[in-house]
Design a binder for these strands. Sequence first.
DNA 1: CTGCATCCTAAAAGATACTG
DNA 2: CAGTATCTTTTAGGATGCAG
Lengths: 125, 125
Amino acid sequence: MESATVDVFDINCPSRAVMEHLSSRWGVLIQIMLLREGTMRFSELRRAIGGVSEKMLAQTLQTLERDGIVDRFVHPVIPPHVDYSLTELGEQAARAVNTLFDLIAGRWTDFEQAQDAYDKRKGEK
Amino acid sequence: MESATVDVFDINCPSRAVMEHLSSRWGVLIQIMLLREGTMRFSELRRAIGGVSEKMLAQTLQTLERDGIVDRFVHPVIPPHVDYSLTELGEQAARAVNTLFDLIAGRWTDFEQAQDAYDKRKGEK
DNA sequence: CTGCATCCTAAAAGATACTG
DNA sequence: CAGTATCTTTTAGGATGCAG
């Protein structure tokens, strides 16, 4: 019994798609947010994540749910109440994504300086 | 002297853009590849990363160079020879991205099962 | 070989209105 | 409240040709 070969560098490998879901614009923010808060409902996520449209939030959540990253729990009440949280697998992914965020936040001046230096180099020529 | 406030959840915060560069489709693959190989030239990256066009590779490399993730070294020869490698900052980012890849590769069956289960649930309804 | 410039298409994302 | 459906706009991305 062999472990499946997974190669994100192969454009036809299905892992490429999962990688893109995990690293998608709204996907990363959802993961970080849920990692911080544990559980959030749709409208809370909507408010917390600046710039997401209703449509993109719903769509991204569905993709992440399908990949086993996010759990969706519907409370059988009216008006509707739907809770989202990370699965154990999702928590692993979210930690990695959050490391990326911490790096950006922690070394923000480095990023700014790099950008300034680059723009200066280009401006001269 | 305060550390700058950085908030990826604010659509107007410049950190949002950097996060998108780091997690972009081709950005993640470039980072993982350079982390593995150390240094690669343009044409090597082009061959190694399935599906990248010349245009997108050049464009993504420039963005990553501007953000201080990637170093670009032009050998003054004809025909041109350009080497790309990770900066120290880029190496930190690449490690986080690579963790994501390891997760996908290491737990691929979990992802597949989650997808199958989701599709089955939906198919029934 | 390593790009850049241009054009063009397909896909992603936003706005809006509507429903259970 | 939590979506879906539809429409429009924007952006990403591919193809090609050319230059240093």
